[in-house]
Amino acid sequence: MPSFSHFFQTFIESYPVFFKGMLLTLQVTAVSILIAIFIGLFFALLKISKVKVLEVIANFYIYIVRGTPLIVQIFIFYFGLSEMNISGFWSATLALAFHNGAYIAEIFRGTIQSIDKGQMEAGRSLGMTTALTMRRIILPQAFRRALPPLGNQFIIGLKDSSLAAFIGMYELFNVATTAGSNNFDSMTYLLIVAVYYLILVFLLTAVVSVMENKLSASD
């Protein structure tokens, strides 16, 4: 183990390069989660559509994602998309979005189905269509209920973005391993990168809980 003073000194000195890595990590995470939310909502709606074909499509997608390792998905996206001249950033981001989308679909499906069916009936009894009731009445409530598990999924997404290192993205984890081996001091840099992840997860948790408080005004 490195001494604390060595760790602290290295932490300060390596700050500029880690900061760049952190920005890339945040970009990959934020963009992939944003896309994953739309993918998740889309497949959640397919799953509850009561149209057999659509349910099968959604289940197949979720099965593929859950049934294969994320690192395999990232490499498939990387080699597949690089043939279309799509950058490493977008390969990693889209792979993570594809991956997280399946888990978010299950989160949304669960919370949508947890909304009392009297809500849909009330909307329909007022002359609202199913789609309008879904958009105005069910989804806002389902989204609020989904926030805690979504926050959890965001944290997983943030940490999983470290796998983008394996297709050459110079994000946090890659910064740490590269600096570690260049300086023959891997342990110090791994401890430093762990601290960066802890700080990011702390901030992300805070953001989610602020959103939860904001949306619980009606409780």
Binding site: G118, Q119, E121, A122, S125, G127, P140, Q141, R144, S218
Partner: peptide, 16 residues
């Protein structure tokens, strides 16, 4: 349904 209003046993107000 626009012409036939309904009131439910469990109110079914929109809580949000």
């Amino acid at each position: 349904r626009e012409r036939v209003g309904m009131v439910f046993q469990h109110f079914n107000l929109f809580p949000h």
